[in-house]
Design a protein around this nucleic acid. Sequence first.
DNA 1: CTCCATCCATGCACATTTGCATGCCTAGAG
DNA 2: CTCTAGGCATGCAAATGTGCATGGATGGAG
Lengths: 289, 289
Amino acid sequence: MEHWDDLKTALHLLRGGTLAAAAQSLGVNYTTVARRIARLEQAVGETLFERLADGYQPTEAARLVGEYVARMEDAQLSLDRRLKGRDQRLSGSLVITAPQLLIVTHLAEVIEAFCAAHPEVDLQVRATNDLLDLNRREADLAIRISETPGDALMGVRLTEQASASFANADWAERIRTRPADRIDWAVYTGLGAVPKASLKAYPNAAVKVQFDDMVALVGAAQRGLGVVRMPMFLGRATPGLVQVPVLEPQPYPSIWVVGHKDVWPSAKVTAFRNILVPFFRGRRAEFVA
Amino acid sequence: MEHWDDLKTALHLLRGGTLAAAAQSLGVNYTTVARRIARLEQAVGETLFERLADGYQPTEAARLVGEYVARMEDAQLSLDRRLKGRDQRLSGSLVITAPQLLIVTHLAEVIEAFCAAHPEVDLQVRATNDLLDLNRREADLAIRISETPGDALMGVRLTEQASASFANADWAERIRTRPADRIDWAVYTGLGAVPKASLKAYPNAAVKVQFDDMVALVGAAQRGLGVVRMPMFLGRATPGLVQVPVLEPQPYPSIWVVGHKDVWPSAKVTAFRNILVPFFRGRRAEFVA
DNA sequence: CTCCATCCATGCACATTTGCATGCCTAGAG
DNA sequence: CTCTAGGCATGCAAATGTGCATGGATGGAG
């Protein structure tokens, strides 16, 4: 058990299932993975993987290895976070993540202010709706729209939010003048139905199309495909959209900034929060009804 | 934090204090240690050790590293033991440890029987009174003379024991014929005094010499330097020594076979116990009064 | 059935890592 | 004060580890 790197390699192979997958996640060539595994098996004196045509099939011993090496990895990730957390420099790398649309409408301004205030910091923004793993330091700080801070251990609520219905000017006019006409909805896949709260006042409504992406949904609304439910800030900030009375303003998950408790005290993370939080305090009106 | 081996190197350097010490415990050249530490500091972006004339002095960050890498090592050692424990082969390496004198008098026979029964096993015996660390698998199985099984988690008492006073034939004769004469004791360093229990019957006694090694003490007794307190089995098995009535038989720590619970079920360890335990059951009389 | 996309094994050349030899520095003994 | 032992840095050559290219095997799509 000389080579801890070989153990790490075995863990990645267990997760990836194939040499190529493990190699990619490790950033090495797959032949290297094969050789490290061979060396590890030599050291352990036991076969860890059956070489099959469709990948390396782990033996029971390999699963045992995986169990304990995962603990090693946990310790390593904790160390990584702790070192990040005690970093008092305002230079070097900082990784944040946020939903694309929030960046477009508001965060770009925050990011710009942060970059101006701390030009030495090498800021990287990961714009995605995916929940990146803050334990693995896929990001140091996350801005999320959700009921709870999520998997991270520290969080500050930036603002509560409401949602409402928006559409383009044509639709707004039509709804105002002929409220009994059929109303087309464009909705997010998964919801798949017209919001119930709107049916009492506007029962003549149906889903016309579903999208699995919020950016696309916004585009659809601009184009006039129908009425879309979205958070207030997004509807208000999108050119060509106006609020329509089809769906009264409703509660919507809050916006949080969350981070791992180990990383939270870091100078760069603190500095970012110190710009982010006041920004949202000052613009609260854009998010609520 | 790419290279886990560098983290391991830092741990050894923290423990050893110097490049040379760390290098030796890792089995590499000390220049390698220096270079791995340099690479690790690069990766962490922080100085971990101050280079001083008398060694590498850890910074606070290095101690943080040490704390978490020790956890990684714990996991690795656990894995090592678990893999050893599930090994059902009766071949390969088996490491046992026992006190030298017990090997000389009794265990040699057990070891011989084991080697005969399992010739494929590569048995290594570490003859020492030091308590090897079974957590670190410095040995798979330990035979120990102590009140408790010690740091290991599984143990079987092989036999209880008594101790008594022994001396060579000259002394035995002298004590028998002139019991009031002064009695010389040779004792183990640390005890440093004549056993109290002997003073009532033989008050005219004094320590003549102290030894820090039991083998040497036995030799001294054979040579006639005086009376020595030792476990029954040792006095009885040592040529030239006879029991003398100066010290009545007294309780003495039992003999245990102990091992880590993870390693205990291993085929080789079990096989060794299966020879060891019956052997002691059958020879109990040699250990008690 | 054939083609193609994956996946794995292996030989060879290159890159990186390691060990060794040398030299410098410091602290402590004589 | 000198001398020595222990500790560290560095250049160079050998050993080891890695990537690339090629070839073989398998399973699913057309």
